[in-house]
Simulated scan of single mutants.
Amino acid sequence: MTETAIKPGGISIHAVDVAHGVPAANLSVLLIRCDPDKTEIARGQCAESGYFSHPVSDGVGVTRGLYEITFGVGVYYRTNGIVLPEPAFVEDAVFRFGIDRISEHFHIPFKFTPWGFSLFRGGA
């Protein structure tokens, strides 16, 4: 079966501000496929639930390759009235990951504070 005949499983994202114990509503997300050409796949903000609601979650635009997600952590905290040092310790959190089997779903939980973050492939 060719890759074009396989339905992509999608990429879902759930962001939580663990410093304040809340879903990261309005956190900016940019998802780029890095190869074979650099292409923006998704851009937007997380919903009130912290989930990134975008067709990419259902596989739209997902192919085999290397991806990069950028989360706007510094802007998120400043917008929410949190004073950060200038420059902030974490301005943007960038995560690169690969997708080999496009039929699988890739859930990316993002847990963060102004001082660090955790990203991994979760189950969703």
Rank of each mutant, 00 (worst) to 15 (best):
E104A: 13
R64Q: 12
E48K: 13
V18M: 13
H14A: 13
L31R: 09
F52T: 09
R121N: 07
F120N: 08
G123C: 10
S103W: 06
I32A: 11
P87A: 04
Y67E: 03
G50L: 09
F117Y: 15
V73Y: 02
T79E: 02
G65W: 04
N80V: 00
T4D: 13
P85F: 01
A124Y: 00
A15S: 15
I102R: 12
A25D: 04
P8V: 09
P114C: 13
G116V: 05
V29N: 01
D17S: 01
A42E: 05
F97E: 03
K38D: 14
A15Q: 03
L31I: 15
Y77A: 00
S28P: 12
L119M: 15
I82E: 00
G21A: 05
T2K: 10
V29W: 01
V73E: 11
P109G: 08
L30D: 03
F95M: 09
R101T: 12
L30N: 06
E91Q: 15
I6T: 14
S53D: 13
S49V: 06
P8A: 14
I32R: 11
I41E: 04
P36N: 12
F110P: 13
H107A: 15
H107S: 15
S12Y: 03
P23H: 08
D37V: 14
M1H: 08
D37M: 08
G50N: 08
T39G: 04
L30W: 02
G59F: 05
R43T: 13
P85A: 12
E91Y: 13
Q45P: 01
A88W: 00
E40R: 14
F112Q: 13
I6A: 10
R43C: 07
A124S: 10
I32N: 08
V29F: 01
G122V: 09
F89T: 11
W115A: 07
L31F: 01
G9E: 03
K111W: 11
A88E: 00
I102N: 07
S12G: 14
E68R: 15
C34Q: 13
V22G: 09
L66T: 05
R121G: 11
R33Q: 15
I11E: 06
S12N: 06
D35F: 09
P36S: 13
M1C: 05
A19K: 04
M1L: 07
H14D: 06
V60C: 01
F106C: 11
A124P: 04
L84Q: 00
P36C: 07
S28C: 01
H105L: 08
S28G: 14
T113L: 06
F117K: 02
D37G: 09
I82S: 00
G98H: 10
S28W: 02
E48M: 05
G10A: 12
G59M: 03
R78K: 01
M1F: 10
P114Y: 06
E48W: 01
K7Q: 14
A25N: 07
T113V: 09
S49Q: 09
R33F: 03
K111R: 14
A42P: 11
W115N: 09
Q45D: 05
G74I: 01
C34T: 06
R43Q: 13
A88H: 04
F52I: 05
L27M: 15
V73I: 15
V73D: 09
F120G: 15
E86L: 00
R64G: 02
P8M: 06
R96I: 05
F97N: 08
T79N: 04
S12R: 03
A42H: 00
G72A: 13
F71R: 10
G21P: 07
D37W: 05
V60K: 06
F52S: 06
E3Y: 07
